[in-house]
């Protein structure tokens, strides 16, 4: 059972970026900077106009991979905390998909870790997207890794 206080969550419901940043900010007064990455659903792709993106996961493996990703980030970078939230549902164009929040004493570590976490998540966590395209009467399956934002 995932709770909003958990630092790693895969969930259907939307999240509040402000609430998630504040939840990390109050964990330590050593924090000097917080870097964030917010991934959103674009309304276009190589397949045409995209009205929504459906996400599915290999649930048990994805949760373990996300927990491992957080542990690796905490070991690899000089950071204080990291929070990773990914939605797995049908996300309408313009809506939020994924949030990475990294707190550190100094900004360089926070930025570096934030980029590493989102880059590694895309390669390491078993989540897939399927675009719902408005201009053709079928779903467009994207079986290739998402280009880095």
């Amino acid at each position: 059972m995932q709770r909003s206080t958990d630092h790693v969550r895969i969930q259907e419901e939307d999240f509040s970026m402000e609430a998630e940043v504040n939840a990390i900010r109050v964990t330590s007064q050593r924090i000097g900077g917080i870097a964030t990455f917010l991934g959103c659903a674009r309304d276009f792709s190589d397949n045409g106009v995209v009205s929504a993106i459906h996400f599915e996961q290999y649930a048990s493996m994805a949760e373990t991979a996300m927990q491992d990703l957080r542990k690796q980030a905490l070991q690899k970078f000089d950071i204080i905390e990291v929070r990773i939230i990914h939605r797995v549902t049908t996300v309408v164009a313009g809506e939020q998909i994924v949030l990475i929040v990294v707190a550190a004493e100094h900004r360089a570590s926070a930025f570096d870790a934030c980029r590493w976490v989102i880059d590694t998540l895309k390669q390491y966590v078993p989540i897939w997207k399927k675009e719902v395209c408005s201009d053709i009467p079928k779903l467009c399956f994207d079986a290739t890794p998402t280009p880095l934002h």
Binding site: G39, F55, Q57, Y58, H86, I97, V98, I118, L121, K122, Q123, Y124, V125, P126, I127, W128, K129, D142, A143, T144, P145, T146
Partner: peptide
């Protein structure tokens, strides 16, 4: 058996 991951 899985295609390449495409989350994020």
């Amino acid at each position: 058996i899985m295609p390449p991951f495409s989350g994020g």
